[in-house]
Amino acid sequence: MSFNLVYRKACHLPVELEYKAQWAIKEMNLDFKAAGERRMLQMHELEEICHNAYENSKIYKEKTKAYHDRRIIHQSFAPNDRVLLFNSRLKLFTGKLRSRWSGPFTVKEVKPYGTLILWGKKGDTFVFNGQRVKPYLTEEEGREAMLLADPPG
């Protein structure tokens, strides 16, 4: 009562506030069965969302794999073919106009799964993936291809 006279406000002790908060929580969560069912429904919905996300990512991976597999150019090489090798380390150095293809190299042996063993200029051998090489066309082969490509006039 003296608090009310001095400050002209009602005095609320922390114990009273805590009791009122507990009472409000009890009133809101009185039906434990309905709250449990609602929580289980939320858990099942979350599980379904995770399952749908997993299925969508699986479909996306399959489509991108099919797209990349379609873009792979299947080339067959035989021993003594001349090839150019893609130089992937060139991007570390400047030189925009330098060719990214080095060579020509000669195919020594063709291994399974597209692996090639190449002869270097000094007679040493290298093992490379077949996707990093392309056929080397000599000037005579290039001229023949140009003659075939010209339209009749």
Rank of each mutant, 00 (worst) to 15 (best):
M1V: 11
M1R: 09
S2I: 10
F3H: 13
L5F: 10
V6K: 10
Y7R: 13
Y7M: 10
A10G: 13
P14L: 07
E16T: 12
A21L: 15
I25V: 11
K26L: 09
E27P: 00
M28E: 15
D31V: 03
D31N: 13
A34H: 03
A34N: 01
A35F: 02
G36A: 08
G36I: 01
M40F: 00
L41D: 12
M43R: 12
M43W: 07
E47A: 12
H51T: 09
H51Y: 08
N52W: 03
N52H: 10
Y54S: 06
K61W: 01
K63D: 07
K63V: 03
K65D: 01
Y67T: 04
D69E: 06
R70W: 07
F77P: 08
F77E: 05
F77M: 07
P79C: 04
D81E: 03
D81S: 02
V83Y: 06
F86S: 11
N87A: 00
R89W: 04
L90W: 01
F93C: 10
G95M: 01
R98M: 10
W101K: 05
S102Q: 12
S102L: 12
P104D: 10
F105I: 09
K108H: 14
E109Y: 02
W119E: 14
K121W: 03
T125C: 11
F126Q: 01
F128M: 14
F128H: 06
G130M: 05
V133S: 08
P135F: 02
Y136K: 00
L137W: 04
T138P: 02
T138G: 06
E144K: 10
E144G: 02
A145G: 01
L147Y: 07
L148A: 02
L148H: 01
P151L: 08
